[in-house]
């Protein structure tokens, strides 16, 4: 009976460090540990992770598991699944939490399946209710919320959405490190993984922009992009976009904002015809002010907007171009 939080390690400038979302998952674990009155342990996997495990041992935890193995030097779904399935069999946790990262998407469903369980993915809140755990997650790209209930004996598995819990809430303390040597065979790892790389240098650096006009699929057609281009021009703003606009080739990839694009924090982010899926929000919610123009009053983008206009962008944007010109004396 315990809660396990699986921490993600990333390589940055040839140094191992934490994926920032790991701390959010750990905060969720500590909060639930208090509510459920269960011990909380953190897990870190890899090779040469002693320093990371030591860092975890200064948190309020009952235990830190450091799973060390040469075959875990680089991430593979096969290696991680085998190692964590072994640990789960050993400690039999009630609940296993992960940050909902791309890596976790890649192996956590496999791990849960191997144990005959279902991972509840991309959870924004976990509540303790009579009769069990209720996990809240979003449906329809954030338009609706849903309560999921995990019934039966554990372990239950959940991955925590970016920003759902706060990393600063992680409590300090002290914990013992237990080094675990998993049973792994090279032959069980079926894939060969190459080193991470970036495509050619980005010609556009949106991270430095003070003003961003960003366009989404509400723009409907490639030819209409000119409209927002004109708005960006008169405002003196950089033009950015949601993923589908770049997928369609209407704007180059380097103008994409979101989890697979750039992360921006301008003074003003003007989102036009963008619904506000979480993968977009993570790239822009650090903006000082967010303005959203959307015809759907329930669009999730308004959840992060300081100013909202519910309306048809094809009416609002042309009017806005005129008003901006006036305000600037153009």
């Amino acid at each position: 009976m315990s809660i396990l939080v699986v921490m993600e390690v990333v390589m940055e400038q040839s140094r191992l460090t934490w994926h920032r979302m790991s701390w959010e998952a750990l905060a969720a674990g500590q909060e639930l540990g208090r509510q459920m009155d269960l011990p909380v342990a953190a897990v870190v996997l890899g090779q040469g992770i002693a320093a990371l495990a030591a860092e975890l041992s200064a948190k309020k935890l009952d235990k830190v598991y450091a799973i060390e193995h040469d075959l875990l030097a680089g991430y593979t779904a096969d290696g991680y699944t085998a190692a964590l399935a072994g640990l789960a069999a050993q400690v039999n946790p009630t609940l296993v939490l992960f940050p909902h990262t791309y890596q976790v998407r890649d192996f956590a469903p496999k791990l849960a399946t191997r144990l005959g369980k279902v991972l509840i993915s991309d959870v924004v809140r976990v509540r303790l209710e009579e009769g069990g755990l209720v996990m809240v997650r979003q449906l329809f790209q954030g338009k609706l919320n849903a309560d999921y209930r995990a019934s039966g004996a554990g372990p239950h598995f959940a991955s925590i959405q970016a920003g759902a819990y706060r990393a600063e809430m992680v409590e300090a303390g002290s914990a013992q490190v237990e080094t675990v040597t998993p049973v792994l065979e090279a032959a069980a790892i079926r894939v060969k993984v190459g080193a991470p790389f970036r495509e050619s240098q980005r010609a556009v650096d949106l991270t430095a922009a003070e003003l961003i006009v960003s366009v989404g699929r509400g723009i409907k057609e490639k030819d209409n992009i000119a409209l927002v281009e004109e708005l960006a021009r008169v405002m003196g703003a950089e033009l950015a976009a949601s993923r589908p606009i770049c997928d369609n080739g209407w704007l180059p990839m380097e103008r994409q904002v979101g989890s697979s694009g750039q992360t921006v924090s301008p003074k003003v982010y003007l989102a036009i015809g963008i619904s506000g899926a979480i993968q977009h929000l993570v790239g822009m919610k650090g903006s000082k002010a967010v303005v959203a123009i959307n015809k759907d009053a329930n669009a999730p983008i308004f959840e992060v907007a300081d100013y909202g206009i519910v309306g048809d962008l094809f009416e609002v944007v042309p009017a806005l171009i005129e008003e901006v010109k006036k305000a600037k004396g153009l």
Partner: peptide
Amino acid sequence: PNVSLDRVYLPQRAKQTTFI
């Protein structure tokens, strides 16, 4: 099923958006 979807609802707005 070992997981059930109990309830679907509109999310509550946490942010105070100024609607124009």
